[in-house]
């Protein structure tokens, strides 16, 4: 995935008398060629705003966003591709499952809009991959945080996005769930070949997933780094696994369950 982002936006703050907090402004630009990009940095530095801009939920005052040569946004040329046409999946921190639909109907929501070609992960594949078969007829509020997040990831994948955005997808989860979903994210990166942009506070998570890291500080670019994350596990991801202890068993279980998935041709 080649991602070229240039954003400038001034946020009008509700000025409090006596506080010299200037209005927050975002002014960042970066170009990366990465399979998985992580946006890191302190809270409130504008990481989620960047994700929202890529998704098309938020339009900045000025800037452009290009993904693999396609312009999604260019304020100078008055181009702003509508969110529903960008085909960018978004896994939110809070899941955001539709409360009035069952898990199954949540998963299938994007079905009408997804192109029929491209990566061949169907409902059954996704359900097996995420281990959510027993939840299909439940309502979202009967799910735990980890279950919700897995369904949210599945829902995004079934819409067949060309890019997957994830905003702290693991923040609400306990350690064990965290490592399960991390393993899943790695597999999406390596086996499905789905490009992704991740916002995270957790260094272990970033080390395992990211192939590039963009550091955002107070609305400005801090640094850009490349990570040696290869398709198979690397030193970095192994060490992260040791920290997160109970990973091994889940990991092999996941791999066993879906050997057929590897034959699915990955997207370039």
């Amino acid at each position: 995935m080649q991602l070229d982002v240039q954003l400038r936006h001034g946020f009008v703050s509700r000025a409090r008398r006596g506080s010299d907090n200037a209005a927050f402004s975002l002014d960042v630009g970066f170009t990366v060629d990465a399979r998985a990009l992580a946006l890191v940095g302190p809270s409130g530095s504008g990481k989620t705003t960047i994700l929202n801009a890529i998704a098309g939920v938020f339009t900045p005052d000025q800037g452009h966003i290009r993904l693999d040569g396609m312009t999604l946004l260019d304020t100078a040329m008055k181009i702003n591709v509508r969110q529903s046409r960008r085909r960018i999946g978004y896994v939110f921190q809070d899941g955001r499952l539709f409360p009035h639909l069952t898990v199954r109907r949540n998963l299938l929501y994007g079905r009408w809009f997804a192109p029929r070609y491209e990566h061949g992960l169907g409902l059954d594949d996704i359900v097996a991959l995420l281990g959510i078969g027993h939840l299909m007829d439940r309502n979202p509020d009967a799910l735990s945080g980890g279950e919700k997040q897995r369904v949210a990831i599945g829902r995004a994948l079934l819409a067949k996005p060309r890019l997957l955005l994830m905003d702290e997808p693991l923040a609400a989860l306990d350690l064990e769930r965290r490592s399960q979903i991390l393993t899943l994210i790695e597999r999406l990166r390596d086996e499905v070949g789905l490009p992704m942009v991740l916002v995270s506070h957790d260094p272990g998570e970033v080390a395992r997933v990211a192939t590039s890291i963009v550091d955002i500080r107070h609305g400005r670019l801090g640094s850009i780094r490349s990570m040696p994350n290869a398709p198979s596990s690397t030193v970095a991801s192994e060490s992260a696994e040791i920290i997160h202890l109970p990973v091994g068993t889940h990991r092999s279980a996941h791999f066993r369950r879906s050997t057929e998935l590897r034959e699915v041709p990955g997207r370039p």
């Binding site: 539709f98 929501y109 994007g110 995004a156 819409a159």
Partner: peptide, 12 residues
Amino acid sequence: RYEQAAGSLGAN
């Protein structure tokens, strides 16, 4: 935010 989520799934 539900509407944003629906938009991200391709719904107009």
